Simulated assay, not measured.
Amino acid sequence: MAEQKTDQKPSGTYEAGCHCGYIKFSVTLSPPLPEYKVLDCNCSMCRKAGYLLVYPTRQNVKWHGESRERCAVYRFNTKKKDQLFCPRCGTSLGIDFRDSTKPKFDGYGISARAFYGLDLDSLQYEKGHGLENVKPARDLSGIQFELDEEEAKASAAAAATNTTTAT
């Protein structure tokens, strides 16, 4: 972790990546950690993925080699944000906001848990209320199972109807 000073604001650059090392990148933040307020959101995705988010702009994230292309993605709810994770070890890395926010934020929500050698107890946290404030304002945990079950029942009912009308 190297501290850097610019003419305007102090910043820090941090190495990050997944657990197995298949994905690596560096993140520059201003202000630097631990002065940066890390978001601890209560939405279903942040809770399940263990995200503690910082928000660098796209130009302040440098993916090493083909690391960005190596990321697996998961999209839920609005299907507009890539939740990034390692396809080999499963480490949750963060969120790519590329096409999802208005006004446009051209950057990432990177999980501070992905930073190498970072003492999470030394950070300042800001509580996020995504569960109450992000549409749909409810817990989406496990909802795909229920959606798949409903779809299977509907398909079975349609097949039964088709069989009955065909005879």
Results as ranks from 00 to 15, higher is better:
residue 75 R to W: 00
residue 156 A to H: 10
residue 131 L to V: 10
residue 144 Q to V: 13
residue 142 G to F: 07
residue 80 K to R: 14
residue 97 F to A: 08
residue 125 Y to M: 07
residue 150 E to F: 11
residue 119 D to L: 06
residue 137 A to V: 12
residue 115 F to W: 01
residue 120 L to W: 02
residue 163 T to G: 01
residue 75 R to V: 14
residue 145 F to T: 15
residue 114 A to S: 15
residue 82 D to C: 04
residue 120 L to M: 15
residue 154 A to P: 00
residue 78 T to H: 06
residue 136 P to S: 02
residue 155 S to D: 12
residue 147 L to T: 09
residue 91 T to K: 00
residue 139 D to T: 07
residue 141 S to C: 08
residue 74 Y to Q: 04
residue 110 I to G: 01
residue 142 G to M: 05
residue 138 R to P: 00
residue 70 R to S: 04
residue 115 F to S: 09
residue 146 E to T: 13
residue 101 T to V: 13
residue 139 D to G: 04
residue 154 A to S: 12
residue 107 G to I: 04
residue 73 V to M: 00
residue 159 A to V: 09
residue 153 K to P: 01
residue 71 C to A: 02
residue 91 T to G: 09
residue 131 L to Y: 04
residue 153 K to E: 14
residue 103 P to H: 07
residue 143 I to Y: 07
residue 100 S to T: 08
residue 159 A to L: 11
residue 125 Y to S: 08
residue 88 R to P: 01
residue 102 K to C: 07
residue 128 G to H: 07
residue 148 D to P: 02
residue 161 T to H: 07
residue 100 S to Q: 06
residue 70 R to N: 06
residue 103 P to D: 06
residue 116 Y to L: 05
residue 115 F to L: 15
residue 159 A to T: 13
residue 123 L to R: 04
residue 103 P to E: 08
residue 146 E to H: 13
residue 156 A to C: 00
residue 144 Q to L: 11
residue 87 P to T: 05
residue 119 D to S: 11
residue 106 D to A: 15
residue 140 L to P: 03
residue 160 A to V: 03
residue 163 T to A: 15
residue 164 T to W: 01
residue 73 V to L: 00
residue 82 D to P: 04
residue 141 S to E: 14
residue 146 E to D: 13
residue 126 E to H: 04
residue 99 D to R: 09
residue 144 Q to P: 00
residue 144 Q to S: 12
residue 100 S to W: 02
residue 109 G to E: 04
residue 156 A to P: 00
residue 162 N to I: 12
residue 88 R to H: 14
residue 73 V to N: 00
residue 131 L to F: 10
residue 124 Q to C: 03
residue 97 F to S: 07
residue 111 S to E: 05
residue 107 G to Y: 01
residue 159 A to G: 02
residue 89 C to A: 08
residue 134 V to W: 12
residue 113 R to C: 13
residue 90 G to H: 09
residue 89 C to Y: 01
residue 90 G to W: 09
residue 73 V to R: 02
residue 80 K to V: 10
residue 83 Q to V: 11
residue 155 S to A: 13
residue 70 R to A: 13
residue 139 D to Q: 06
residue 148 D to T: 13
residue 160 A to R: 11
residue 138 R to E: 13
residue 90 G to K: 10
residue 131 L to W: 03
residue 78 T to M: 07
residue 124 Q to M: 03
residue 77 N to C: 09
residue 113 R to Y: 01
residue 102 K to G: 02
residue 135 K to A: 14
residue 130 G to P: 01
residue 70 R to L: 14
residue 92 S to M: 13
residue 72 A to I: 00
residue 151 E to Q: 12
residue 155 S to K: 15
